[in-house]
Design a protein around this nucleic acid. Structure first.
Lengths: 230, 230
DNA sequence: GTTTTTATCTCGAGG
DNA sequence: CCTCGAGGTAAAAAC
């Protein structure tokens, strides 16, 4: 990884065109050819970048560019498209290279699949008298997260970490399909999430879909497997 | 901006829990307290990070951590939530700080608003005999991108850079509302995008919505305003 | 301030 | 290889 602090201007041409006026920034060049241009603020997204795989070419400025005070011209080209990032460097304040090696990568806990496993094990969180039929019940338009038997019949469960309007739409499509199957119908809908947005709740309830808010930490506490990832 | 190349392990605790095993990485500390942890590959997303505003505390390792070869412990806490990033540093290979100043920011050209302006000007790209009624036609659930008059009546246009299934759902909701208005009905739907995904096209056509693929570069070439942002 | 929409989204899983 | 859905989505625009 090469780290350069430079006063530069940048132009990107690809799916859109974008430009950065002259200022001092960090240029990060990764081993796979990726280039990231960061300012000293904002979150993790760079001001501008090139995704890997890419290759960089450094050349001297032409006469006009020399006049404009440009010392180096970096051209970063994507290998799989014709996206091009051009960096005009006026001054380099720092330049260092470092050997990092491969990264073992991030281990996560608490994503939707974990939530699904826990709710499958603790299906009574949908209400007393529920039992699991199956996870990932297949339909022609994709799998339903959970299918369960409740006191009032079969229920299809759509599970989200954050319950949004498109999750309700998704469940609605599933329910329409499931209720066409005479062996399964009638199937009621349950929209279960750690957090349900008001608009999603309103839409769901208008359609007769029940909303259930889940407490992940609580469910994890009750988890008999209690896996320790780290 | 502070740049540190260090052999470290990292733990994040917040909306989920995540862990990075011991390896050598770049730690970037920004002026607003943001911290980014990058490996030497992958696109612009860091392996792990803390969004600003945040504050960092550096302390010495406890006895057990010293035994494990840890030299420093960085604790990065978000100011607006209880998210915490803990970085256990075993070895620092590089450490430098740099003054960057405020960035003038990115200027873009080619986003959805540009596409909408161009299609409004070149509405005949929907087919011969189309004329624009208005852009951003208001409805109770949000504005319809374009409303036009075609040879066979009024059409509502939903515009996307990438045409996905949720765009079709959105247009469907608009059409249902617009067709309730006796002054407007009947209104047909057109789903226009630079790229339309097969599933979205299938759903749209099932619902009698016409799909139109737009060529932005072509439209830009025909643009009489020809704005030069840079 | 909140909510909604966009994104050069990135990233991973599954066919 | 492509397609699809999730994301600690982030970030900008709309309200």
């Amino acid at each position: 990884m090469r780290l350069v602090i430079a006063t530069c201007s940048v132009t990107y041409s690809g799916r859109l065109n974008a430009h950065l006026a002259l200022a001092t920034r960090l240029l990060m060049v990764k081993a796979d050819g990726a280039v990231l241009i960061h300012s000293d603020g904002g979150s993790y997204k760079p001001l501008n970048w090139m995704s890997p795989p890419a290759s960089m070419r450094v050349r001297d400025p032409d006469a006009e560019q020399v006049q404009a005070g440009i010392e180096q011209v970096w051209t970063v080209a994507a290998e799989k498209s014709d996206d091009i990032l051009t960096i005009l460097i006026s001054e380099i304040h720092h330049d260092s290279s470092h050997q990092l090696g491969r990264d073992p990568g991030l281990v996560k806990d608490g994503v939707e699949s974990d939530l699904q496993r826990l709710l499958a094990e603790q299906i009574e969180r949908l209400g007393a008298g529920h039992s699991l039929i199956r996870r990932e019940h297949p339909t022609p338009i994709g799998p339903v997260d959970l299918l369960a038997k409740g006191p009032e019949g079969t229920v299809a469960v759509e599970l989200k970490r954050r319950g949004d309007i498109d999750g309700v739409e998704q469940l609605t499509r599933y329910l329409e399909l499931l209720n066409r199957d005479p062996l399964l119908a009638p199937v009621a809908g349950v929209f279960a999430a750690q957090q349900i947005r008001p608009q999603a709740r309103t839409l769901a309830e208008d359609r007769g879909i029940r909303c259930v808010v889940l407490d992940y930490e609580d469910m994890k506490g009750e988890d008999d497997q209690a896996p320790r990832l780290f």
